[in-house]
Each structure stands twice: as structure tokens, then as C-alpha cells.
Design a protein around this nucleic acid. Sequence first.
DNA 1: AATGCTAACTAACGCCCGTTACCCTGTCAA
DNA 2: TTGACAGGGTAACGGGCGTTAGTTAGCATT
Lengths: 218, 218
Amino acid sequence: MAMTTDSIFYQDMDGKPIESPNKIKIMDISIELFSRKGFTGVSIRDITKEVGIKESSLYNHFRSKEELLSTIFFNFRRSISRILPQEDHLGGMLQSVSPELFLKQSLAGLMKHIDDPVMAKVWRMMYLEQYRDRVVRDIYLNDIVGNMLKSLEKVFSIWIAAGRIQPADARILAAEYQYPLFAMIGVYVLLRVDGSSTWDIETGMREHVDYFVSKIIV
Amino acid sequence: MAMTTDSIFYQDMDGKPIESPNKIKIMDISIELFSRKGFTGVSIRDITKEVGIKESSLYNHFRSKEELLSTIFFNFRRSISRILPQEDHLGGMLQSVSPELFLKQSLAGLMKHIDDPVMAKVWRMMYLEQYRDRVVRDIYLNDIVGNMLKSLEKVFSIWIAAGRIQPADARILAAEYQYPLFAMIGVYVLLRVDGSSTWDIETGMREHVDYFVSKIIV
DNA sequence: AATGCTAACTAACGCCCGTTACCCTGTCAA
DNA sequence: TTGACAGGGTAACGGGCGTTAGTTAGCATT
């Protein structure tokens, strides 16, 4: 099996950067395997065989299989929080670019996150473990769906107040804009499991932004 | 654990109706357990203990754990195919009701399927096993996403030709209408895992239909 | 030179896994 | 009355599971 060496800046759950090469390798390979077979479908032996160490050695790095999973999602959470527009910068950014450009740049930022070879797999894990694991469910519902909708609602209400788009309920606009993208991201991530072409769904995302913008501009 | 006795008309994969009470019980309980812990997270012993038979007796009904899973999705597929509007009835139905009413009725039909206590769990299983199982992936991408988009595209193009809605690309309209619903259904199904309130997301679905209709009527 | 720490190792624990071979009992058609 | 058969049961197979105890080699600090 191919090995991922494109490793991200992983951190331990206490905030310390993870530097030990084998510990990084454990993370990379766990993400790869969990994303394809699910947490319960992968054994410690599967992981350590791939890493090239004995199973007992894994326990020098992680207290349990659960802690390994938590560490992966801890890093995902950190990483996701960076792609949301920060409230305090919002005012300036919104004045300098058009709504259309802003939305297209946001989409590009999101796609960049999903296209990262490691993060793509963690997105897959998130969709996969949601139903089994309450923490993962919360990450999706709060950190992703909830936060994105809230921050977009803010954006739309600013535009409405400034008369840059048609008056409407900002909360509904945020939902209309974002929910299709969530569904399309799901399909996109799914297609990539088999390495199928994602051209159609990527086009769909761009068409959605265009359609949406055409309906809200003054 | 609560037992589901509200069982559907199950069929074997060769089309024969499943009538043996314990075989129905195995299906119901498997669906319950698989939907909460995933296929690999549930053992034959978990299932048979709940049914009240020995594990060897399960093999009087199913050749393997895999066949049990396949039978569940075989029945899901059958059930899903019934909620899509049939092409041949389409013409008559579209003339007699307004676009708004038609869309609201379609949504109600879909929600009824998801609200069925058994089918709700299989929807959850589908989202859960998608990444592990190619067949499930195909059910979602083709039977659900693909078919619904195709049939909606047909509907919109008929309306456009009849001048009942504003001219537009029917394919894009279908996507704009349906994708948000897919995402919202995902959230809806997820919320039901914990028994959380689904009021917000159900409202969101209705608001989406209203918003969408308001943007397409002539 | 001695110390402590990191991270590898061997070996094993007790338990759970899917599945099978075989047996027993009740029902119902011939 | 007999015989097939559906659907229960017992017992066990070989193997995989997560995890732990104890050991050891290499390295940096004192």
C-alpha cells in the first residue's frame, strides 16, 4: 500500500507538536486505513504492520486505539477552524471585494482544505464515523455546519445592511448557499474513494455559486 | 433494548417474501444495531443474543453476515424505487397541480420514507457504510442522488416548456432544489441518532422549498 | 561514568470473531 | 405412519482482537 509522507504539522492533544517519525507515520497510516475501512474495521495489527513496528510499540505513542482516533480528530478540528473567516477581519474584507468574488474565494478555500491529500481522508472519516461517535457528530454539526452557517449569516446581513444584495432573511440565504455545498462535498469525497471523476460535481459547485449570486444581487 | 415489531414486507434477495418470525426479527435487530455501530462494529453474537437464538441458528436464515447486509440493502433499494415519481404518470400529475404543490408533495413523500422507523435506520446505515462498501456507494450515488436529479430535471423542463416557471437550465434547477435537501436529510438523520430536536432542520427544509419556489415562478 | 528517557522488542493474557459439523424436535404432506 | 424439512440447539474450530508486563538498545544530560 502506498505510504503518505506528505504529513501535516500534527499536534498531540496537549498541544505539543508531534515530531517522532514513527508517530507521524502511525497517524498517516491510521488515517488512510480508517478512512477506507472505518475505525472498527481496522486493527492495531493492521496499522503497525504497515508502519513496520510491533503492535506493542504503538502503545509508546498512544494510550489506546481510542486516543489515536481522538488525536486525529483533534487535529482535524484545529485545521478546520483555520478556514473559517475570522469575525474581526470580516468588515474590511467585505468592503474590498464583491459578494461574488468573496463567495468564490470562500469556496476555493474550502476546496483547498478538502483537496489536501491527508485532510481529504479525514473528511471521509468524519462522514464515516459520525453515526458511531458522538464527538465526531458534534464536530460535524457544530464546528462545520453550525459555524459555517453562522459566519455566513453574518456576511449576508452585512451585505443586506449595506444594500449590496437584495433584502432577505440572512439566515435563509446562508442555508441556501451552504447546504448544497455540504451535499456536493459529500458526493465529491465519495467519488474520490474510487478515484472516479469529480468533474461533474466540481462543475456543479461552481454552477451553484453562479446561480445563487444571480438570484441575490441588486 | 427496545425491539422493533413494526416490520416491513421484507423480501429475500430472490424475491420471496420473508415470513419466518425469527428471520424478520433478525432483520429488524440487525438494522437497529448496524445503524448505530456500523457493520464491522456488530457481531453475529450481538444480533442473535438480542433475537433470542443461538448464533448457529442465524445460519439457517442467512448464508453469511455479508448476505444479511445485502438483504437489508436489497429491501432498501426496492423501497426507495417506489418514492420516485414514475415517468409515465408525470404528464398528468404536472398539469393538475401547481409547481409549488408538486414540490411540497414530493418533499412530504420523501420525509415519509425517512420517518418510517425502520427505513430511518437504513438511511443511517447507508450514510455509514457508503465509504466501506461499493454497493452501498452505488445505491446512494445512482439510485438516490442520480435518479432524483434526473427525474426532477424532467419535471423542470416540462414546466419551462409550458411557461409555468422562468426559463432556466433544468439541470441546474434540479441541483439547486435537491442538493440542499440531501444535506438537510443527512443532518436530520444524524440528529435522530441522539433523539435531538429536528424542528430547526425540518423548518429549514420547508423554508428552502419556499425560497426556491419564490425564485422560479413566473 | 552514571542516569534517565525514548522507543523499540518478545511473549503472552483473556476474550471475541465468523463459521461449521452435527444433533434434536415439531409440523405437515404423502 | 412415515419421511422430509425447517428451524431450533450444543460444541467447537482456528484465528484475530486490544492490551499489558517485562526487557533492552541507543542517546542526551549530569
